[in-house]
Amino acid sequence: MSSVRAQWKRWAIVVPLSIALGLILSALHVPAAWILAAIIAAAGSAILHGEELIVDPRLTNLAKSFIAIIAALPLVRTPAGELVRYIAPGLLSAGFTVALAFAGGWLLWRGSLRRARRAGVDPHDPTVVVSPETGVLSLFAGGASVMPLLAKDLGADFRYVTLTQYLRLLSVSIIMPLVVAWAHLSGGARPSEEHTQPFTWLSAVAVVVIVLFGGRLGKLLHMPAATMLGPMLLTAIVALILGPEHSLALPNVARDFAYVSIGWMAGGGLSVAALRSFSHQLPLTLGLIAVLIGGCAGLAWVISQWMGMSYIDAFLATNPGGLETALALGSETGAVEIVAAMQIVRLITVLFLAGWLPSVLRWLQRVL
């Protein structure tokens, strides 16, 4: 009982601190402000007390459903014709980034394994050695808010995955506006019109249905990453049934709650040992993130030539993460449909592959 009371006392500090930090970081326009705020607050509590801050699994499951709805909305809003047209380049982008993630994840695993052996440390110690699953998931492009949840389901180190994913997201979110400004497109392009529909009582009922039955649908259909793809599929189905009169765009408070829950999950599990492990891998991690961003920038040129689009539109459509930033900048350049279509094709491909990740890695370990 005393440990439960101690957890509640810690939460009484973490919750208001997360809200205060989230408001400050949002006002400063920091990318992923609410997740970052929650990571800082929860990690501070975990490190200060030397004990994990436990997040109720029901809270995490609710956050999963909300994140799945958020991820599916661009798919719902993108015209079918645009999706079909950009399936091929979207698959090329997905294949390219997945290949880089597997190669980078393998390097992270082998590098940490060699370091552990030189130091005479147990090579099976997860605080020292980055597992192949952890390395690959940390470098999967797109779905930064999804990968930590999948990492927890797949037995990977979700703390390392979260920190790496949001380090990449921060880098991409800073680079994208600079590239658009450098190309002199932001000021000259006519913003596309955005029609937002109201969030009605029927929308609220639909969200409850998705939360309750989305994961079950995914498991019933034996989908990989069922807890994410199931709610995404149900979101698309419900949106088609409701029509454009009812929006499934979550209210800001629900969206921020989902992001904060992910931050608590990642930050609450941090320890001095985990942070030390991350710092040891930081140089290689930063190098791999740079390779990923540079590789996608090169791929954008190939796709721009192939599809006859401007380089900046292809760059926004293939950049490794920061979907919300990419869509916002795409609306300024008039390419929001292109960006949404290619990013969503890649996201769905990555989610399918992530569900089979353990099997693929076991096969690679046998072959290599």
Rank of each mutant, 00 (worst) to 15 (best):
P123E: 02
A236K: 02
R346C: 01
L163P: 05
L361S: 07
I35Q: 10
F257E: 06
A72Y: 08
G267A: 03
Y86C: 11
H184K: 12
S192A: 14
L17G: 02
D122H: 08
H184L: 01
G143H: 01
N319V: 14
S145G: 07
I174G: 04
Q305M: 06
T235F: 06
I24M: 14
W363C: 00
A103Y: 05
M1H: 14
C296L: 09
N61L: 03
L59S: 11
T164W: 03
T200S: 13
L288Q: 04
L83F: 09
T127V: 09
Q281Y: 09
F158G: 02
A99S: 11
D125P: 05
A225D: 12
L351V: 13
G267R: 00
V30T: 15
Y86E: 14
P198V: 08
R255Q: 13
A42H: 02
V209P: 04
A328Q: 07
G295P: 12
L351N: 05
V260T: 14
T134K: 04
R190T: 15
F140D: 01
P123C: 01
V129A: 02
P16T: 02
A33M: 10
F140T: 04
L242H: 11
S93I: 07
A88K: 10
G263M: 05
A335D: 09
T333M: 13
G90P: 07
M265A: 10
W301K: 06
E245K: 03
P358T: 04
A183D: 13
L137E: 00
F96K: 00
A33H: 03
L25W: 10
G243E: 07
V208Y: 03
G218K: 00
L327R: 00
A274F: 00
F352E: 10
S2F: 13
L229D: 04
H29W: 12
G267K: 06
L364T: 10
R362K: 13
G22C: 06
V360H: 01
P126H: 01
W34K: 09
L347S: 10
T285D: 00
P123N: 05
E133L: 15
I237C: 11
A204F: 12
S277N: 08
T325A: 12
I54F: 05
I69S: 03
G334L: 07
A204E: 09
V161E: 01
I175K: 01
L149F: 13
H280N: 11
L185P: 00
I24S: 11
P126W: 02
H222W: 09
E194S: 03
L178F: 15
L21P: 05
W106H: 15
L229W: 04
V55G: 08
L100R: 04
G104R: 10
T285S: 12
M342I: 13
H184V: 03
R216Q: 08
Y166F: 15
A42E: 06
S93W: 10
A183T: 10
P123F: 08
D122F: 09
F352L: 15
P74M: 00
A317Y: 09
L169I: 12
T235D: 04
V76E: 06
Y166K: 12
G142C: 02
